[in-house]
Design a protein around this nucleic acid. Structure first.
Lengths: 165, 165
DNA sequence: ATTTTAAGTCAGCTTTGTTGACATTCCAAG
DNA sequence: CTTGGAATGTCAACAAAGCTGACTTAAAAT
C-alpha cells in the first residue's frame, strides 16, 4: 500500500506528541510577546497597539478596512486603539486621495521610533531562536505555521509579502 | 573563519525574513485557537477555561499553585475560572492528603468530556498541519518554539513530560 | 508560639474584545 | 439628480480575562 505513506506518517504521531506541540505553541507564544509587552506596559499601551503599529509599518498607507481584515477585530475595537495612536502623534490618518471615504494610515516619526523599539525586541528573540535551532528548523517552523493558518489568514499572510519587495 | 559559521547563518536572516516569522506566529496562533474558541463561545466559557481544563487533564491531581505557575496568571484570575468549572461540575477540588492546605484538582466525567471535545478539535488542526508539513518540518517547528520560550516556561514545558509517561 | 504558606475572597481597575444603533461622507447606479 | 449602499467614525453598554491590594482561614514549618 504505497499510497498510504502519508497515513503512515500520520500514524507515527501519537496524541501525546501532538499535545506536546500544542503546549509548545502555548509557552512559545508567551515568550514571543513577552519583550514587547514589557515595553508597552511602561507606555500605557497594549498588544493591540503593537499590532496596529506593526501592520501600518508593514503596509504604509493602508486603509482602516484592510487593517480590520488583517487583525480580525471589529472596527470599534480597532478604532479605539487607532484613535489613541493618532491623538498621541504616532499615527497619521489622511483622507484617501482617490476615495475620500477611506483613510490612509501612516506612522509619524515618533510612531516609527516606537515601532522599531518593539520590533527590535521581538526580532532579537526570534533571531536568537532561529540561530539556536538552525536553518532547516526555521524552514520547518515556517512550514508548520503556514499549514496551521485559516485559509483567509494564509492569503493575507502572503499578500503582505507581495506589497513589500 | 570557521568559528563564525553561526554568524554567517545569522547574516543570512534579513530583518524581513525574521519579520515574516513574527507574522507567521501571529496568524498561526489565531488558527491554533480558532476551533476550541468556537466550541467555547457556545458554552459561555473562554480560552482561560480551556487552558485550565487542558493542564488539569494533563496533570491530574495537580495543585492550584502548580497550575498558577504553569499558566502565569494571578490566583484571583485563575480562581474565577476554577470556581465556575467546579460549580458547573467539570472540575473536582479535593483537600490534599499529605498537606491539607493544598487542593488537588481533577476533571469529572463531564470535565473529561469537554476537555476531549476541545482537545480533539485543536489536535485535528495540529495533526493536519503536521501531516502537510512532514516529519522534518515538525522537528524544526518544535525546536524553534522551544528556543523561543522563556527559561521558566521551558522548564515547565519539559516538567509536564516527566510526570506523564 | 510564631511565622510562613496555600488557598480563597472581596473590591476595584484595565485592556481588548463584543453588539447594536446611528451619523457622515461619498461613490455609483438608476 | 436622487437614492442606495459602502466606508468610516462614534456612542453606549457589556463581557472576558488579566491586574493590584487587602484580608481571612487553615495548616504546616520553624
Amino acid at each position: 500500500m504505497p499510497e498510504n505513506q502519508t497515513g503512515e506518517t500520520l500514524l507515527f504521531l501519537t496524541d501525546e506528541q501532538v499535545r506536546q506541540g500544542i503546549e509548545a505553541m502555548f509557552f512559545a507564544y508567551r515568550g514571543f510577546t513577552a519583550d514587547p509587552d514589557r515595553i508597552l506596559s511602561d507606555l500605557a499601551y497594549g498588544r493591540a497597539h503593537h499590532r496596529a503599529l506593526h501592520f501600518i509599518a508593514r503596509s504604509p498607507g493602508t486603509t482602516v478596512n484592510n487593517l480590520l481584515n488583517i487583525l480580525g477585530v471589529t472596527k470599534q475595537s480597532l478604532n479605539r486603539v487607532l484613535r489613541t495612536l493618532v491623538e498621541d502623534g504616532l499615527v497619521e490618518s489622511r483622507v484617501g486621495a482617490s476615495d475620500k471615504r477611506e483613510r490612509n494610515l501612516e506612522l509619524t516619526d515618533a510612531g516609527h521610533e516606537l515601532e522599531r523599539r518593539l520590533s527590535d525586541a521581538q526580532r532579537a528573540r526570534m533571531r536568537a531562536a532561529y540561530r539556536a535551532a538552525g536553518p532547516e528548523a526555521v524552514a520547518g517552523f515556517r512550514h508548520v505555521l503556514e499549514a496551521m493558518m485559516d485559509p483567509d489568514s494564509h492569503r493575507r499572510y502572503h499578500a503582505l509579502r507581495e506589497v513589500s519587495q
